[in-house]
Structure formats: C-alpha cells, structure tokens
Amino acid sequence: DKLANFEAIVASGERIEAGEWMPQQYRAECLRLIQMHANSELMGALPEREWIPRAPTLRRKMALVAKVQDEVGHAQLLYRVAEDLGKPRPQMIEELLAGRSKFHNVFHYPVPTWADVAVIQVFVDGAAMQTQGALRSSSYAPYARVLKRICYEEDFHIRLGIDVHRTLAEGTGPQRAMLQDAINRWWQPIMHFFGPRDQASPHLQTMMRWRIKVKTNDELRQQFLRQFVPLITDYGLQVPDPQLRWNEAEQRYDYSEPDWEEFKRVIRGEGPKSAARLALRNEYWQRHQWVREALDAWGMAA
C-alpha cells in the first residue's frame, strides 16, 4: 500500500518528489521545517540590511548588498518549495507577519555595530551551514535540490565574513574591541541556534527515519564548535563561556548549559528585536498594498 511504498522509497535512500503521495505527518513536518527556514531567510535579511547604508568601503557595500540579496533569494527558493506542500506563498508571508509562524532565534537580536555584521556572517551563517549542509541529504527532493545552491552561496557568505572578521581582528585597538564585544553579545544566541539537546522520542525517530532530520541538535552544535571556535581563539579573542573547553577524552566540547528559557521566550517572538522587526515588515507590507492590487489587476487583464 502507499505507506509501505513510501517507507521503502525513503529507506532505499531515494527521495520523495513534489506531487507524489506522502503521509500527512511527513507533509506537515516538511512544510513546518521549510516554511520556518524560508521565514528565517526573509527575516534574516533585516539585521545585516541595517548596515548596507553604513558599509565602510565601496567594495564592502556591494558585497553586503549581494549577501543580503542572497538571503532574500533563498527565501524565494524556499517559499517555492514549501508552497508545493500545500500553502500558497502569500499565506505563509501573512502568517509570518501575524507572528503565527516562527523564524530562527538569532534574527530576533539587535545589530548595534559593524562588527556584528562580521559575527553574523561568520558564526551565525557558519552555524546555519551545519544544519543546511546536513539537510542536503534530506529525503524531500525539491528541498535537497534547493539546498545545494543555498549552501554554495552560504559558503561565500562565511568567506566574506571571515575577511571582515580578520580585518577587524588584525585592525586597530577599537576595531578589535568592537569585534570582541560583538562576539560576547552573539555567543549565547548562537549556542541557542541549534536548539536544546534532543531527547530520544518517537517523534525524533520518525523524523530521522524519514530523513527530515539528519543529525541531532547536539551533533550539529559540536560540528560548529570544532570548526568555528578556532576562528576566535586563533586571533587571541575570547569565547565568552568560561566553561567552554575541548574534552579530549570524549572528543567533544564541554560548555555551559545555555539558558533555554530565554531561547523559548525569543522563539515565541519576545526577543529584543522580534516586535520591532515584524512591525517594520508589516509597515512595508501595508505600504505596498496598492502595488499588489495593481499587479493583481494587471495579471487578470494579461
């Protein structure tokens, strides 16, 4: 029967295509995951975009516009994938604007200095790369295809960020201090990014079996720490977690347990910038109402 056939396809490592039969739970989980990913790309454009008008050189300005443009482009690609799972794009955007669907914790925080842009591009995008890289083996074919391009472009973002990070780390005293301050402010949200340690649960097992989730939260966090902690310590900068150290015996990083209450609050939309950013998006959405009406009328006539 259909479920057995579906399980067989997934178990064999094959992928499921849009328009193909799938269990309702698989469709719902994929939609929730990909919609949140799309929302996060669209909202993820806002923090760095504040620095486009203030980028300090012509080349940094062009590169930052290109980088934020990629985030908007990723939202376009991801909403397109989520759409075929049963929710039109306008409805997903309206759910985001109404605060009814989530976006990643890291985009609920302020971006007070130019160094924040470097920290976001290196460490936030670096964290996202772990999750997105793993999901390239996702069982949902349209998602896996889109992630191939997204990961290629995210890799560019990380390299761009490393260049700014290195320039500040090797720059003047005030530049180094600005960078350390940004790292201090962003470390907790970045540790939150991967979510709490997975409790073994039937839900988790199904997600892993169906390859909607490919690695556990803590595997991804450890993968991130191994790659990115050196980028701080190699420049003589501090990781703002006194407990953080490499545990040779267990081949993993030990770290202070993040404050998961703050994480839950932020995800619910009570982060320092949650309301302000959603309000800003809503304001533009209202201002463009006349443009949407005009395009609808033009589309009808075409």
Partner: peptide, 23 residues
C-alpha cells in the same frame, strides 16, 4: 533551475534573469 512568481511572461523573464543568472 527554478520558478518565479510574476504577473506575466515578460516580467517573469526580467525577474528570472537576476534570480537565476547572478552567478
């Protein structure tokens, strides 16, 4: 390579150019 939302084919081509041939 992907799809675009647009009111008509002419705008679709204009929008497709930047989303799918930037790199």
């Amino acid at each position: 390579v992907g799809d675009v939302h647009a009111t008509d084919a002419e705008m679709a081509l204009v929008l497709a150019k930047e989303q799918f041939t930037r790199r």
